[in-house]
Amino acid sequence: MTVSTWASKSATVQSAVLVGGAAAALGLRLVIGGAAAGVSPAAALVFAAAFIALAIADGWRPGDIRLRQLAVGTLGGAVLCIPPTITRLAGHGIGAGPWRDYPTWALVVAAVAVAEEVLLRGALYDRLAAGAGNLLAIGIGAILFAALHVPLYGGHAVILDLAVGVWLGALRLATGGVAAPAAAHTVADWAAWWLR
């Protein structure tokens, strides 16, 4: 078997294993969290740890994080915040949660957001892009991203999550690293505390 054939087959198999691993991690989160899976910090942290472990087992390592990537990611997160900001400014929404709960919530949320980006826009993206190109890497990452959130948010969030997945994938492509989508994802999550 030539090196290129091996690499192509390996990329497909490893991608499939990563997707299976993501599903197993989600299953673990749902079982540990039970009916409160969406709000259980313990379940969320196990989920995040599983995602990071999958990425590391696949050989993913963090590259150099450049300031530009973080800046682009922060701007990307700001884009995600536009609609809820408009809704909030229009007087809708339920208001920020209590300050005292924010630090813990923000830490857990950041862990999950970064872990998801490391797996989806890091390890899986690299595998898929190497084997089938960037477009497919963005698309499959977005589909998996949306699918992972159905048990937590319900089916009505699929369209939005698909679009967000494409946006985060585009940030990955544009900046060449995970830092930008991870920053965007985290910024959007953190802002949600005030924008709900």
């Binding site: 609609p83 809704t87 009505h156 369209i159 939005l160 494409v166 959007a188 999550d189 949600a192």
Partner: peptide, 26 residues
């Protein structure tokens, strides 16, 4: 393409769609 899809998705999604896409649900 991403920002266009986002715009379309926001128009199509119900108003109660979560403003965040991951982490812990409020």
């Amino acid at each position: 393409c991403g920002v266009t899809l986002l715009g379309v998705a926001w128009l199509l999604s119900p108003p109660s769609s979560p403003p965040l896409y991951d982490g812990l649900i409020l």
